[in-house]
Nucleic acid binder design. Structure first.
Length: 800
RNA sequence: GCGCCUGUGAUGGAAUUGGCAGACAUGCGAGAUUUAGGUUCUCGUGUCGAGAGACGUGUGGGUUCGAGUCCCUUCAGGCGCACCA
């Protein structure tokens, strides 16, 4: 009888649901385990095979943990606010709410089809007012604590999405989502002070079990630099403050550069002899997109500010001041002290503009190129620093600056505050109103959620105003503070708002009094294992760590870090080894795979495909291998003998498989776990097996391929279900084989093997090896100088 | 440019962490069962060689009794950041 995967899969999915096997219990004496996948954005194209990889992996973990006796929380929900839905709604004239409803229904059926053991009773959606009421609540808390502020500043503007982007959303100068050109636009935006948490976001990584590349990437993104802030006086009377990592090179400062947007430029309008030229340069810099600005970075450009000079505080020399777009307005103070001898960019600029280049650290030829080593070298031409090593010079000059009141040691971060407003419809409304008398006033908590109103048109505007701004009835309101006329904030929150705290809501998803009860937060605690994409490392993962720390600081959550462990999966590529995309026509639809081969085959293949952490190309041919395996499992269940004992011949292999599968799951080596299960299946198929053998085998396989295991379990007439078994105990004594094959080497070269009892000692093993005919031939040909013995592994004869 | 990672059969990938390279699977070849096969089963499959054997983990070197694994060199590919002062 052939295995009918369709019948079996729908049958067992129904039974699991009826028995509520995967419900997490908030009042349990068991140890808790919180396994989390990144909740999907329910897009119109449906679930992607790329989703199946992390979801299956964490489903395996969740199922295994339940079998190990844990009370497991393995939830799912929808990160449903966002631009693609809104754009689809605009194009097809369907309300975004409706688009979301349809997409969620499709995703739900696809996830159920794959047999994932989610606790569906805890399903959440970020677009649900009962959910976003708490997103808004957190925002109000941020506002209350001064961590949300409105600022007018140059922001990243995606010309295609017509929306402001956070720095994290700009990738290589273009929009992370659509690839559209990003330009600088001066706009007034709500900002979140993530920079206030920069140091803690770095420091607390140390205590976390995150894969190293995530930690590194977050640290690089936050970009901590240490150095000093130094103030330079100018002939105009104003001071220029700069941040530098090389205060030791202060004697080598031969000019200064302001970013084109620097406030002093406008302030000096009247005294600059070439203001029109300066203004022209600034206008050009503003017009350039980020991409152009970096592309044109090869050749340095700039204009000297004629009529003003700065003074080098140590040499007393008057030095020129330039503006140039190689100095960023958004980093440090937006101004630099230029040391052409020891910074390559400054060197190029100095060469082009004919500024003197002074060597202050020995080690290179500064007329040929900048000597940029910041650790080694001896100071020269540097007055009281002469003869000091660079690190000592840094300390000395910093102390000197502090003493003279000219500067002080300083730390700088690349991380910038989070631009938190979007000029689009389909997002959480910001619960603030503006009153001419009272300024920005938060809505009282009792008025949350502030419901997103239904509008006629979702079209974004070219003016950079949110579509909500046209809803005059909604916009015009009264001030909660003074009762006077006021208007609402019409921008909405970014996509990343709802996902910054969703894992907390799962703990207590129906709570109407708080985002989750204190008891639930205490019980479930940190997410034990969170797997998700590397692409979220400096977006969602960083943002949610920030929000969580804030919630910790105001006493809402009991831990300062949300996730104890973070792992990441590689991408599933198309058959052509290219990223799957509609335009390439290489997209694999999970529905087709499940239709043709079944969910278990899909689950097994996506885990067997290769190293979990690396990208892997899909192979429609290789899927069959997993289907054959599923069929063979079913066939074994038909063939197994009636005995409930474990076959002695299989015992050692079974125990080694228990160890291998159990350990491999914990370290993301699902591919080798499956390989070892295949090996066991092959062995049992060849040598025969009992119901007792199958019992262990099906239990081990059950997290990977739960349907065929429960079906086979039932066919064998076993009690209960494979899904509900206790995870098998590994017995080292039983795993040990009675005999081992020892490799024999002659002068380090493998020649033959000999089989000896597993506990065979050195003398006996060497003796046995010596008696192997082939070995004797080599031994007779020379003198034995040395014998190397590795227990249970090899014997190496060194012969001369 | 800086940081991180990866190079193993025709393909995806294993290798007990320094000890029989290529597990497991795909593909391919031969055979069997079958009216038929996108079924199932058996055998074979790193390269050269009839064979004994020799060679073989991107390149070149080193450490070691022994290196895919450690060290140095170099090349190739991927990812992240990118004028970050």
């Amino acid at each position: 009888m052939k295995y009918d995967f369709k019948a079996a899969e729908s049958k067992w999915q129904r039974i699991w649901e009826e028995k509520q096997l995967f419900r997490a219990d908030n009042n349990s004496d068991k140890k808790k385990y919180y396994a989390l996948v990144e909740f999907p954005y329910p897009s119109g194209v449906g679930l992607h095979v790329g989703h199946a990889r992390p979801y299956t992996a964490m489903d395996i973990v969740a199922r295994k943990r339940r079998m190990q006796g844990y009370n497991v929380l393995f939830p799912i929900g929808w990160d449903a606010f966002g631009l693609p839905t809104e754009n689809y709604a605009i194009k097809n004239h369907i309300p975004p709410k409706e688009v979301t409803r349809v997409n969620v229904a499709q995703f739900t059926s696809q996830l159920r089809m794959l047999g994932y053991s989610f606790d569906w009773s805890r399903e959440i959606s970020t677009t649900d007012p009962e959910y976003y009421r708490w997103t808004q609540w957190i925002f109000l808390k941020l506002f209350e604590k001064g961590l949300a502020y409105k600022a007018r500043m140059p922001v990243n503007w995606c010309t295609s999405c017509k929306v402001v982007l956070a720095n994290e959303e700009v990738v290589e100068g273009v929009c992370e989502r659509c690839g559209g050109a990003v330009v600088r636009k001066e706009k007034s935006q709500w900002m979140l002070k993530i920079t206030e948490y920069a140091q803690r976001l770095i420091d607390d990584l140390d205590g976390l079990d995150f894969i190293e590349r995530v930690k590194i990437q977050q640290k690089n993104w936050i970009g901590r630099s240490t150095g000093a802030n130094v103030r330079f006086s100018t002939t105009a009377g104003d001071e220029i403050e700069v941040f530098t990592t090389r205060p030791d090179t202060l004697f080598g400062v031969t000019y200064m550069v302001l970013s084109p947007e620097h406030a002093l430029v406008e302030r000096w309008k009247e005294i600059l002899k070439n203001y029109p030229q300066v203004a022209e340069y600034r206008a050009q810099a503003e017009k350039k997109s980020d991409l152009e600005r970096t592309e044109l970075s090869k050749e340095k450009t700039g204009v000297e500010l004629l009529g003003v000079r700065a003074v080098n505080p140590v040499t007393g020399a008057e030095i020129p001041i330039f503006i140039s777009d190689y100095v960023l307005s958004t980093y440090g103070t937006g101004a630099i002290m230029a040391v052409p001898g020891h910074d390559q960019r400054d060197w190029e600029f100095a060469k082009k503009f004919g500024v003197p280049i002074v060597e202050v650290v020995m080690g290179g030829d500064v007329q040929q190129e900048a000597y940029t080593d910041s650790e080694t070298g001896v100071m020269v031409n540097s007055g009281f620093l002469d003869g000091l090593e660079v690190p000592d010079a840094k300390k000395r000059i910093t102390a000197w600056l502090e003493e003279k009141g000219l500067g002080r040691a300083a730390v700088n971060y690349k991380l910038r505050d989070w631009v938190f407003t979007r000029q689009r419809y389909w997002g959480e409304p910001i619960p603030l109103v503006y009153c001419d008398k009272c300024g920005w006033v938060p809505l009282p908590e009792s008025e949350l959620p502030l419901i997103l109103p239904e509008v006629e048109s979702y079209e974004p505007t070219d003016t950079g105003e949110s579509p909500l701004s046209t809803m005059t009835d909604w916009v015009h309101t009264t001030c909660p503070h003074c009762g006077g006329e006021a208007h609402r904030e019409t921008d909405t929150m970014p996509q990343w708002a709802g996902s910054s705290w969703y894992f907390l809501r799962y703990m207590d998803p129906h709570n109407t009094q708080a985002l989750a009860s204190k008891e639930a937060l205490d019980y479930w605690g940190q997410v034990d294992w969170y797997n998700g994409g590397m692409e979220h490392t400096t977006l969602h993962l960083l943002y949610s760590r920030f929000w969580h720390k804030f919630l910790y600081d105001i006493g809402v959550v009991p831990y300062s870090e949300p996730y104890a462990r973070r792992t990441s999966h590689g991408m599933i590529l198309g058959e052509d080894k290219q990223k799957m995309s509609k335009s390439r026509g290489n997209v694999v639809n999970p529905n087709d795979v499940v239709e043709q081969y079944g969910a278990d085959t899909m689950r097994l293949y996506i885990m067997f495909i290769g190293d979990f952490e690396k990208a892997a190309p899909w192979s429609s041919a290789a899927v069959k291998g997993c289907q054959r395996f599923v069929d063979r499992v079913w066939a074994l269940a038909q063939q197994a003998s009636d005995s409930d004992y474990v076959t002695p011949q299989h015992e050692a292999l079974i125990h080694r498989t228990i160890k291998k599968v159990g350990e491999d799951i914990e370290v993301l080596k699902f591919n080798t776990a499956i390989a070892s299960l295949m090996t066991l299946a092959n062995e049992m198929a060849e040598k025969g097996c009992t119901r007792g053998d199958m019992k262990v085998f099906l239990t081990l396989l059950s997290p990977f391929a739960p349907h065929v295991c429960d079906e086979s379990w039932e066919a064998l007439g076993l009690e209960g279900m494979a899904s509900c078994q206790a995870w098998p105990e590994y017995d080292e004594a039983k795993a040990r084989p009675e005999e081992v094959e020892i490799a024999i080497q002659i002068n380090g070269k493998f020649r033959d093997t000999v089989t000896v009892p597993a506990d065979c000692g050195q003398d006996e093993t060497v003796e046995a090896a010596r008696n192997v005919p082939k070995v004797q031939r080599y031994l007779e040909g020379g003198t034995l100088v040395k014998t190397i013995f590795v227990k249970g592994r090899l014997v190496n004869f060194i012969v001369k």
